[in-house]
C-alpha cells in the first residue's frame, strides 16, 4: 500500500505558477464570487482546461451551499406570497445546482466540450418537459 511521497509538499506537487485568471480580466470582473476564483495556472493540462480549485475553496463553496439550503428552508416557513416564495426557491435551487456543476463537477475549469455535452442534455430536458407540461395545462390557472 503506497502513501504520499515523503518530503513532498502539496505546493511542490501542485506545481503552481501564478494566480491570474486565465480567461482574462473581463471574466474576473463578471464573477460574483472572486474569493472562489483564485485558481492557479498549472502546467500539463489538457487543451481548454484550467486547474481545479483548492481544498479551502471547496470548503468555502460547501459553506455557501449550506447557507443557501438554510435560506430555502427559512423561506418555506416564512409563508410569503406564493409566487414570490416559489420564484425565490427556484432561484436558490438554480444557484445551488450551478455551483455544484461549475465547481464540484469542474465544468467551469474542464474542457468546453464537456460543458456543451452536458448542457445539450440539460437544455433538451428543460424544453421537452416544459413543452410537455404546458401542453397538458399544468401552468394554466
Amino acid at each position: 500500500m503506497s502513501e504520499a511521497e515523503p518530503g513532498t509538499t502539496s505546493e511542490q506537487q501542485a506545481g503552481t505558477t501564478t494566480a491570474t485568471d486565465p480567461r482574462g480580466p473581463s471574466h474576473a470582473e463578471a464573477d460574483p464570487s472572486p474569493a472562489l476564483h483564485q485558481v492557479h495556472a498549472a502546467p500539463h493540462l489538457a487543451s481548454g482546461e484550467h486547474a481545479h480549485p483548492s481544498e479551502a475553496q471547496y470548503i468555502r463553496i460547501a459553506i455557501i451551499l449550506a447557507a443557501v439550503t438554510a435560506a430555502e428552508v427559512t423561506l418555506y416557513y416564512l409563508k410569503l406570497q406564493r409566487t414570490a416564495s416559489n420564484s425565490l426557491l427556484l432561484v436558490f435551487a438554480a444557484v445551488k445546482g450551478a455551483m455544484v456543476a461549475l465547481y464540484f463537477m469542474h465544468l467551469k475549469f474542464d474542457n468546453r466540450i464537456l460543458r456543451r455535452l452536458f448542457l445539450s442534455g440539460f437544455i433538451l430536458a428543460v424544453f421537452v418537459y416544459l413543452a410537455y407540461l404546458t401542453t397538458l395545462g399544468v401552468f394554466l390557472k
Binding site: 498549472a42 502546467p43 481545479h52 483548492s54 469542474h106 475549469f109
Partner: peptide, 11 residues
C-alpha cells in the same frame, strides 16, 4: 488543509 490549487492529473 492547503489553499493551493490542485493541478488536473489525467494520465
Amino acid at each position: 488543509m492547503t489553499d493551493v490549487a490542485v493541478p488536473v492529473a489525467h494520465g
